[in-house]
Computed example of a mutant assay.
Amino acid sequence: MTRTLRVFRWSPGEAERTREYRVEAARDTTVLDALVEVQRSQDPTLAFRYACRVGMCGSCAVVVNGRERWACRTRLGDLGAGAVRVRPLYHFPLLRDLVVDLGPHAERLRRALGAFTPRAGAEPYARIAGDSRERAAIDEAIECIGCGMCVSACTLVAPNPRFPGPAALNRALTLQLDSRDGAGAARWGVLLGEDALARCHGQGTCTEVCPMGLQPTASIIRLRWLGLSRLLRWTG
């Protein structure tokens, strides 16, 4: 079966354009398989990113037919009979073709104090038991692999560059509920500012595209409730 790919192309100094390729595909051929075939047999200049090829690392994240997806997990046979449109993730600086710079993603995490900071006086190897209530409270939010798909799908990232984005806020929830972390007070200063939790519109597009099944929208709502409780304690 012959399938048509319409792939976004761009490199520094050139205009954005779409290039069309045709590939032979079986039922189980993935978008990543097709891109690799194009690069090997038709156009070695095509740039895209991938690593594991088995749905573990998230590095092959792109937008396929208007929706953020892992190229290695998306089968051409599941996309209907028409041409398959492939473009890079939104809201990230372009490097070339389908490759984006994930540096801003790391910067958003940094601004939201997304790094674990050991609490003063805590045991150096303190552990949270897997069957504890504390672990259960964050269990649904800890499997983020940093692929950037939720940031691409978010409608708030582009108009407000100070908004941390869903991945950073999801990470913040896991840290605010971690008894070993010592940066909670400083992190609340960021989260309760005008450009963080208050900016999310709750549309849920981040949750819809998360390949790990996480729910950043729910994490943001939980943070709002925790933040409200904190503010009420201050004013009570």
Rank of each mutant, 00 (worst) to 15 (best):
V64W: 03
G82K: 12
C154N: 05
L197P: 04
L79P: 03
E16C: 03
G66V: 08
P93H: 08
W10P: 09
F163I: 08
P216M: 12
P44K: 04
A115C: 00
L89K: 03
A186N: 12
C210W: 03
R119M: 05
G130H: 04
I138E: 09
R133I: 00
L5I: 06
R19S: 15
S179N: 08
A198I: 02
T235I: 09
G103D: 08
A172P: 06
R3T: 15
T2W: 12
S229K: 15
L46V: 14
V84A: 14
A51P: 12
L223T: 03
L191F: 07
A185M: 02
G146S: 10
L98I: 14
A129T: 01
C154M: 02
R6Q: 10
V31G: 07
R133L: 15
E143Q: 06
A186I: 07
S11I: 07
L226W: 03
C147Y: 02
C72M: 12
L156G: 01
R67Q: 15
P93C: 06
A136N: 08
E20C: 01
Q39W: 02
P88M: 06
A167N: 13
L113R: 15
G213Q: 02
G121L: 02
M149R: 03
A129S: 09
T155E: 05
L94S: 04
N65M: 00
V23C: 10
D195V: 01
R19N: 04
L231M: 03
Q42Y: 04
A136L: 09
R73Q: 14
Q176E: 15
E140P: 00
A136C: 06
